[in-house]
Write a protein that binds this DNA or RNA. Structure first.
Lengths: 189, 189
DNA sequence: AAACGCACTTGACAAAAGTCAATAAATTGG
DNA sequence: CCAATTTATTGACTTTTGTCAAGTGCGTTT
């Protein structure tokens, strides 16, 4: 994943086969938006109406505990990542998580309406279904890891860029381990 | 959840508003099928072409480790539950998990094609999206639990019927805890 | 009835991870 | 640029969980 997405071609190509015309269509529908650091792209209780492709900067997604104090990180996104609340988007219920800009961020926003238009314009966009599925992959990703060390090593090998983009505290929360445990894992190897 | 689903009305009503005609349509498209104990409803590598509504009996879903020996349970389903591999179904890739009949089981099978037909016949079936989403809920369900005790108590309070339908060994695997740990949790309270 | 397999329990111990506390390093804001 | 805050590390200790092993109860088979 590059630090900044200049060409949509490389991003979309990883999903399926698209013609130049398809990509042009996409570019038209997926409007560029800028969010300053700390802004919420999706708020608590809000119904998700769009998915975001991170162009530059980083965003994260978190849930709140009962007292709405502790933040449990459930997603970390950098340039090239698709970021959205899958549950809220698919079922059109209020979101139980928040998506927030961790830094100043540029995204391409693709609304449900635009997705329907793209689907109508070219069958290639059915591949977007696979794309949406990736949002879930992230959540179920670390299920196969049996302990903290395995989780950390999976992250290092598959998403090394996250280590530079986010503080370890957030990464520890994402992996659902104590920051001290994470710090010790790093010291060992 | 009842032990046996006689009327589709109650099942569908929990998803959205359906007319008698809608339900009749559904009944026609979702064909009844019988699987004997141990039969695979979805095999490893197979691309999921349908979702199943369990009518009676029970099914389970599991992943295999690298040596294909250890089974990691990722889903337990009894009457009234929708059972399918969300990732394979949505993205149309080969399944990395297996769905198997734990007992003799009767299901209603709803193919992708039938879903498209239902969507075309009535807008009410857009609510099926929410239904499909529930498959994911199960996976992400126990993420909010911090330890084995919380996981077990969540299961007891939300899915008590599973305790009767499946051996504790499988439930322990589903919760990703050692069967001994589970046994001790039960002894305490 | 005896032998067997299987699920479950229990005990003893080891390993893993969390908590609390002190400190160091880095970042931010005035 | 310095003070204040946040973030990361490290040590000591506790709690939780896993592992290994032995034993019990129950149903099935022969």
């Amino acid at each position: 994943m590059p630090n900044h997405i200049n060409d949509l071609f490389s991003v979309l190509s990883s999903v399926g086969k698209f013609t130049a015309h398809d990509i042009q269509q996409f570019e038209q529908k997926a409007v560029l938006k800028h969010f300053t650091k700390g802004t919420e792209l999706l708020s608590l209780g809000q119904i998700s109406q769009a998915v975001f492709l991170v162009v530059s900067g980083s965003t994260y997604q978190f849930e709140l505990d009962r007292e709405e104090i502790e933040e449990q990180v459930i997603g970390l996104y950098t340039a090239g990542d698709w970021c959205f609340n899958h549950a809220s988007f698919v079922s059109q219920r209020g979101s139980r998580s928040v998506i927030k800009a961790y830094s100043d961020v540029v995204v391409r926003e693709l609304s449900i309406f635009s997705i329907h238009q793209l689907l109508a314009s070219s069958p290639a966009f059915f591949q977007l279904g696979a794309l949406l599925e990736r949002g879930v992959d992230r959540l179920t990703y670390f299920n196969s890891a049996n302990n903290a060390k395995e989780k950390y090593e999976m992250l290092v090998s598959k998403n090394p860029l996250l280590l530079q983009a986010f503080p370890l505290k957030m990464i520890a929360s994402y992996l659902n381990i104590a920051p001290e445990t994470m710090s010790r894992l790093r010291a060992k190897k």
